[in-house]
Design a protein around this nucleic acid. Structure first.
Lengths: 335, 335
DNA sequence: GATTGGCACTCTCTTCTCGCGAGTGCCAGG
DNA sequence: CCTGGCACTCGCGAGAAGAGAGTGCCAATC
């Protein structure tokens, strides 16, 4: 049904349309790509492709544009993502190597990804779930308030204020801190609940309310609410995309400001090649049905990152960039 | 030169234009506002106002729109910002009271401000400069890497990885940690440099490289680079503003993604009333000359917050909202 | 002297028409 | 199965014309 040449034609249509943003006709196709056949032949192929739903024409007498199905086939048949140039690789490395801490790594990654792909970049903080606890600190703020600071080996620091039911003695806090660290230092986050649940029973009766309050917050902070932070950048690139603006741009921007929506983007990032490409309506998020999303995970399933762009997107280039950035970020955070 | 009625006319023009986004003519003016005079009279006044540069007409035969100078006069002559309704106040309070930690306060504030003003909200983290150190922690990550965590009384937590020139013994680190806390715990950040500079000399020779490295990073983290973090939200509201889009929207979005630019926005937020209003070209940032910015500080000069919106902005409403939010944030963080 | 009604004038914006051109579908011949 | 030719379809941009909103100015009025 779809011989090789038809695939070639589809590929050519996608490439041209992505480059020019204009419906592409049979004549222009044979000129710009060395197809070695006449326009009429291409027209026949295009009719077949349209029949199958891979391309469509906006008006009766205009060129063809790819449909979502067409993009999907294009992406699936992609021999391989085109590698970045050496210069690009160096730039990525140089850009990320300057980071001083985790926040900085994430910030730089977002920026880099947005610049390289010229699209909206989305980067998730390394997840806590497979991290181990490096240290827990309790700092008295006032008589009835503590600050809990938890450091994980992924370089992430979580902080939280603990409101106490009663004022606590300094040495009681110190004691609790020591016990807490003895129990969970070096342990995996998943195991924390089991380890700390018995803690209130092990301290003296008058320190029990304190211990209970702290344990509650520890669980909230580290386990119950692993609060996957996600950072966004390059929204200015959205203006680059389409032409019929205000209507389509607003809902996308609004959706991207929702943490929940961003989380969904990384929902099931499980793909053999490691790259997930969601084209238009394939998208899990209603409001982003007008966009395409390319994501991947980095590190040993530490977290995910990706970009959001127009359906009419340079998929090979974007996929290469996302993969390359993810690789470097994984290296840096894996150290 | 400008009698009371002319001022009234200007006010009416500004209000109508802000509401409709269309040039306002003499007839519509007398209808919508009870001016008690005829359109012809208003026309005379408008001619005078135009002569003085407060209003202009886009084309020869259209209504008038305010100039920047007109907006400026309008804002300056504002009797007072119109108070929020009780419901709005309650909403603000309810929204902010649920915050669990500093990050959360800031996030909620941005969101709230964006929603209430329907514009782009900008919130600066509480500055470190007048904070005091609450606690400093050193956590070994590997043999040659430490994580430095500094907690201040403003609820802010700074973290930074310290690369050591050599591997450090655990007890050397513990010793250093104790010395460090003894020196700067409870002290003001401004005083930290003096307090820690002598520290490397006080430890044993073999711990000196360690101490030097740590002290360097402490200074970087807390003093040299007080890295004023700024959070942004509600960019989707930008699409609400103008009509000639892609051209004007892009540079603004790009500018807003620059931390440096945002910092400049809060440059000299010193105004008797506490509210700074920068209209169009008054703006210190080149790229934001097409916008107006309303900022104020919160808390006892803890930080600043504000919104960025179109020059054609509901100034009274925006000013009221910014002030109200700043007040509540100040209260919360001041506790 | 300020205010008002009247009136001619100026533009912009919308709608309409119309030709151009790009691109197609189909057919007959290689 | 490919190719050249040809009639056909529409979207798009350029003018043209009409409508409407608003102005500026002048003479009359309070």
């Amino acid at each position: 049904m779809l011989d090789d040449r038809k695939i070639d034609v589809l590929r050519a249509i996608v490439e041209d349309f992505v480059a020019t943003n204009e419906p592409v006709g049979s004549k222009a196709l044979v000129e710009r790509h060395g197809l070695g056949v006449s326009p009429a032949t291409v027209r026949n192929d295009m009719a077949a492709l349209e029949e199958e739903g891979y391309i469509a024409q906006p008006h009766t007498s205009a060129g063809r544009i790819p449909t979502e199905k067409g993009y999907r086939l294009f992406v699936d048949r992609l021999s391989g993502v085109k590698p970045l140039t050496a210069a690009e690789r160096r730039a990525i490395k140089r850009f990320l190597d300057g980071a001083v801490d985790l926040d900085d790594v994430v910030r730089r990654t977002v920026r880099l990804l947005a610049q390289v792909t010229r699209q909206v970049a989305v980067v998730q903080y390394p997840t806590l779930s497979r991290a181990t606890v490096r240290h827990v600190e309790l700092v008295p703020l006032t008589a009835t308030r503590l600050m809990l600071v938890a450091i994980t080996d992924s370089g992430r620091v979580e902080q939280r204020v603990v409101e106490l039911p009663m004022s606590a003695a300094v040495d009681a806090v110190a004691d609790l801190r020591a016990r807490l660290n003895a129990k969970i230092d070096g342990k995996r986050l998943i195991d924390v609940p089991d380890l700390v649940s018995s803690l209130p029973d092990e301290v003296s009766a008058d320190a029990r309310p304190l211990a209970t309050a702290v344990v509650t917050v520890v669980l909230e902070t580290l386990v119950e609410q692993p609060e996957e932070r996600i950072v966004l950048g390059g929204t200015a690139n959205l203006t680059r995309a389409t032409s019929d603006f205000p209507l389509t741009l607003r809902p996308v921007l609004e959706a991207l400001e929702e943490q929940m929506v961003l989380l969904k983007l990384f929902g099931e990032t499980a793909d053999p090649s490691g790259l997930t490409v969601r084209i238009g309506p394939e998208n899990p998020v209603e409001e982003l049905r007008t966009t395409s999303v390319v994501t991947t995970s980095y590190g040993e399933s530490l977290g995910s990152l990706g970009v959001v762009g127009p359906i009419r997107m340079d998929y090979p280039g974007t996929m290469a960039a996302v993969r390359a950035v993810a690789r470097y970020v994984g290296e840096i955070l894996g150290t």
